[in-house]
Design a protein around this nucleic acid. Structure first.
Lengths: 133, 133
DNA sequence: CGTCCACATTACGTAAACGTCATCGGCATG
DNA sequence: CATGCCGATGACGTTTACGTAATGTGGACG
């Protein structure tokens, strides 16, 4: 079933994307499926990356930004200086995401207040309607 | 200074956008500046809406989605049924945003863990370097 | 009065992120 | 062997969200 390797069709169904999208991501070096003859075979690593890609998209990151973020997850055997730089970037990203979350929390609170106001308006409208009968 | 009405240039400086962007938002019915002759004059309401637009964009909402969200804030004197419908949509949006925030929190935690791992790697690399000297 | 501005409109251009279509290569199956 | 079907590759199309001229206009100012 969930073998280590998946065909493009299986990937599409599993993650609700089109073949075109997966090929596009490969062209953009976001995924690196291996080849069996011509056919692409997606690994566990590709699936992990795809999940992160889709998540990133939901937050409005561009594919290029996502690519940079993904690199943080595959680092491997880099130079020390390179590693530190990567660490720096990641730290910035983290701050970025946290402030985003704070802002989102603010937005949620705003909307909640708006909803409470809406409830009151609806209640008063029903009241009027009743009185008019 | 901060009179009720602002020119396009003032808006641009205040919110760090281009004139083109503001005209574009007007064309898309996201803003409704009044006209003095030919010139646009942006009201307090436009500024409130613009803030929400820019915020929405930061979360990856499309302008069309943002337009729908904005409508929730201007409701005014609608019919009761219409009002209830609006309330419903807003409630859905709220749930949407909350799940988004949860996901964001998850992403933040993931990244934090990744950073801790990175710290360890860097530390061990420094160790090795030291030992090699 | 000429000449800058600031702003307007119209129109074409562009980058990102795919969609769509045409064509082609294997292979399995009746 | 013909007929599908799945997948690959290219090439062109599309939508979103503006950027970028080109051109026009109504005041302000020396």
């Amino acid at each position: 079933m969930t073998e280590d390797l998946m065909t493009i069709r299986e990937m599409c169904e599993a993650y609700d994307v089109t073949p075109r999208t997966l090929r596009f991501y490969e062209a953009k070096e976001l995924l690196f499926p291996i080849r069996e003859g011509q056919k692409r075979l997606f690994t566990k690593r590709d699936r992990a990356r795809l999940k992160l890609i889709l998540r990133g998209k939901r937050f409005g990151f561009s594919l290029e930004e996502i690519r940079q973020l993904l690199d943080l997850y595959h680092v491997g055997d880099q130079q020390l200086t390179q590693m530190c730089r990567t660490y720096e970037i990641a730290t910035e990203r983290l701050a970025d995401m946290e402030s985003r979350r704070d802002e989102l929390t603010q937005a949620i609170d705003d909307l909640k207040e708006q909803l409470r106001w809406g409830e009151k308006v609806i209640a008063s409208m029903k009241q009027e309607k009743k009185a008019a009968e």
